[in-house]
Simulated assay, not measured.
Amino acid sequence: MKSYSILEINEVLKGVILGTTNQKITAPEQIELANSSEISFIGNKKYEKFWGTSKAAVAIVNEDISIAPGLNRAFIKVKNADLAMSQVLKLFAPPMPLFDCEIHPTAVVDKTAVMGNGTRIGAGCYIGPNVVLGDNTTLYPNVTIFDDCTIGNNTIIWSGAVIRERCHIGNDCILHPNSTIGADGFGFRPCPEIGLAKIPQIGNVIIGNSVEIGANSCVDRGKFSSTVIGDGCKIDNLVQIGHNSRLGRFCVMAGNSGLAGSVTLGDGVVIGGSASIKDHATIGNGAIVGGGSGVIGDVPAGKTVLGYPAVEARVALKQWAILKRLVSFSKK
């Protein structure tokens, strides 16, 4: 079991220690569940009230903390408690699943595929013709990568992921279990002869560097050209990204949200859980779409929109307040 003193932890965090404790720290834990050998964090002042009943020996706190640690307990004061806690989690992280060999004997690797140095391929994987895998790429069991794809350096692809033909994934990416990259876009048109005619989807998907795609999420290929996910984007589980959509850098999409076809997101856009964006809409840099909202038009840069259909946040809040008053009045 890993354990660290508060001084050893602070060597990593480079914060300011308030209080004292000689307790060795054996794990991080949320503040309500932590025991006397664990470290927690207070990332918001509203959680200070839990410290009095918590058993944690140490908490990572922001610089504006307004309470004292108490007897034989300590705080590590930092500029950003959330980011500091992520460093602590890395200290205590258990090892990743092990590989007995670099390429498992049950993996099927086409003779034309190119393997980078240090690449590891798990049991039951399929690597198609002309695939290029970068250095230190890890494919866990039962990953499928079809023809002419490229995968960058240090990328991790978890079990069950499927990457369709001609798609390109950058460096330092993580694809979680059962994610699908490059499925056909949802394209059909009424046809007198057959009812619905399928529109061929002949484009691909291009994913930048340091992108994370959650479990069971799907990024559809372009009808023509590419669906593009910019550098640093973070996509939650169960997210749908439609064909020919283009995400800028560092966008965030929470679970069950979705983009219809040809949506454009600027840099730093945040899409809340279960929000949906109409096809061909443009969401400007830094805009926020609240959870459960339905966006049916463009959103200017920096704006926050809420509701179904989504409107500017302050307008939505006024509408809800008026509706609440009307309902209360009708009951009188």
Rank of each mutant, 00 (worst) to 15 (best):
R249M: 10
V269M: 06
S257W: 06
G242F: 14
L238V: 02
C251H: 05
V305T: 09
I322V: 15
S257A: 14
A254Q: 03
V239C: 01
W320N: 10
L323Y: 08
I322N: 11
F329L: 13
G284S: 10
I277R: 12
F224C: 13
D298Q: 05
G284R: 11
G258K: 09
S225F: 12
V305Y: 05
A321G: 05
A275V: 14
G307L: 09
H243A: 05
M253N: 02
L317D: 04
S225Y: 09
G222W: 13
H280W: 08
V252T: 10
I235C: 01
C251P: 10
K223R: 15
A254R: 02
M253S: 03
A301E: 15
I283W: 04
K278G: 03
I296A: 15
V311I: 14
R249N: 15
L317S: 01
C233Q: 02
V289M: 01
L247C: 04
I288H: 09
P300E: 15
V269H: 12
S245C: 04
N285V: 11
C233A: 10
V299P: 08
A287R: 10
G297E: 11
Q319K: 07
G302Y: 06
S274F: 11
V270R: 12
T282L: 03
N256I: 03
D231M: 05
I229T: 08
K278R: 15
G297R: 13
V311M: 01
G268H: 09
G290I: 01
G266L: 06
K278T: 00
S245F: 02
P309R: 12
